[in-house]
Design a protein around this nucleic acid. Structure first.
Lengths: 243, 243
DNA sequence: CGCTGTGTTGAAGTAATTCAATTCTAGTGG
DNA sequence: CCACTAGAATTGAATTACTTCAACACAGCG
């Protein structure tokens, strides 16, 4: 795939107009392409000298493990997303990342990113924007956990993934393929897998959304949005007026 | 206060060695100093053309309001913290910010930040690092909401604020002054104010921590840390090897 | 075939909320 | 100085949301 067409380029270009020189620097980020198998731990919390990745194909998840062995998934990554960006800015990773499906990702070196900043402040701004957009999603996730009940949380999460996948052409208003298990959903939403099952049944029986056999189907998109208090704005931010 | 001594400079300098030129650019961020009264809304969700601030004195909180009127506080800000940084990178603010106490803050213009990036990539890196550090705190907060019970959540939050305040010289191992009401705590921890009250009583009666009359006292610091699963590492990140 | 990971359901237990009432406290005006 | 007020803290009782434990169903795969 040409650098012009990569999901990351598309995402960053939505924010700032990147020059040919910027694109050239960006292309150097993609050192080598690697394949990972489902369940493989790509970044490990607490370990130093981690690499970052740009996800080209497949799904991954970032998570933290608690002292009692519990797990909280912080974010799901889909094609075009950065992966482990904070783990190169910090000396040791503050979270782990694991492949959900078989996936392909470009390796990004910390040095390349930092050098890139020196050569193109415009690119630095674009990456700060991308990082901020990711943070906006984490913030919405936090609100989800703090102030919504299990049914609303699930509805909100399924809608958010739908909106993100649609942006990279992997889903539409009707639904999308989703490789997450009910255990993944439990760790995302701060619930037990048993309760996730019941929640999915509730939503299905209420005619809102159906998640079965790896596919999410929006049975009543509009009503689900109202029910979950979903507002796409936080995903939709344009950047400032940088040409 | 000289720019050399400002809380923000201190924070950024911990990450990269800033040159005199960098410090000069940074000093231009502090356009004017403003005072706000408790409860004043400094940044409003959904509104365009917001300014960012650097908090010099007092406490603030960032939050989102839900359709049902509920509120989730995403982060508490103390002196030295950026405030509303994402609201200038995006065209409209994705969250609101309100003064908790009477506070003083320097106004920061979006244009100054973006121009600063062009003039000093090193400064851009430092600010990206600071933003990442804030995100690491939001992530820990998310884990707190998703996978800890009310008592552990409270313990963890009180310890985190203690650690942050100690970094800027506003508290020690014994405790700190805390202007938050039980309603604030409820909105931070995703609980009701009634339950917050019971939780504080539990922790007090267990001899772990006492929060009364605006002061937090750690009765048994070590045991509280173990009880809450608190690990300071995520606040303690050194940056990469940028000289 | 038997294994393992995933999904499903019921019943009992626990954590947190809701609603309602009461106390405490600091600030305000008479 | 006291009475009055509004915000904040406290407590009890009833209810709801979610978890836990245990059992079983189902599919893919060696």
């Amino acid at each position: 795939m040409s650098i012009l067409k990569s999901p990351l380029t598309r995402k960053l270009s939505a924010f700032v107009a990147l020059s040919d020189a910027d694109l050239d620097i960006l292309s150097r980020f993609h050192r080598s392409r690697k394949t990972f198998l489902p369940g493989h731990e790509m970044v490990t919390e607490g370990q130093a000298k981690q690499t970052a990745f740009i996800l080209a194909e497949g799904w991954a998840c970032s998570y933290k493990i608690l002292p009692d062995g519990g797990r909280q998934i912080v974010d799901i990554q889909i094609p075009g997303d950065f992966l482990g960006l904070r783990s190169v800015l910090f000396r040791t990773a503050d979270h782990s990342v694991e492949a959900v499906t078989r996936l392909e990702a470009s390796v990004v070196l910390a040095a390349d990113i930092l050098d890139g900043f020196g050569q193109s402040p415009r690119l630095a701004t674009a990456i700060l924007w991308a990082a901020s957009r990711d943070e906006a999603m984490v913030v919405e996730h936090l609100v989800n956990l703090g102030r919504r009940n299990a049914d609303e949380r699930m509805g909100h999460f399924l809608l958010e993934m739908g909106a993100r996948l649609k942006l990279v052409g992997l889903g539409d208003k009707l639904g999308y393929d989703c490789p997450l298990t009910q255990y993944h959903l439990a760790d995302v939403l701060g619930l037990t897998a048993v309760h996730v099952n019941r929640v999915l049944r509730n939503l299905r029986e209420d005619g809102l959304v159906t998640f079965q056999k790896g596919h999410v189907t929006f049975d009543d998109f509009q009503r689900l949005k109202e029910f979950s208090g979903f507002d796409i704005d936080y995903l939709d931010h344009d950047g400032p007026l940088l040409r």
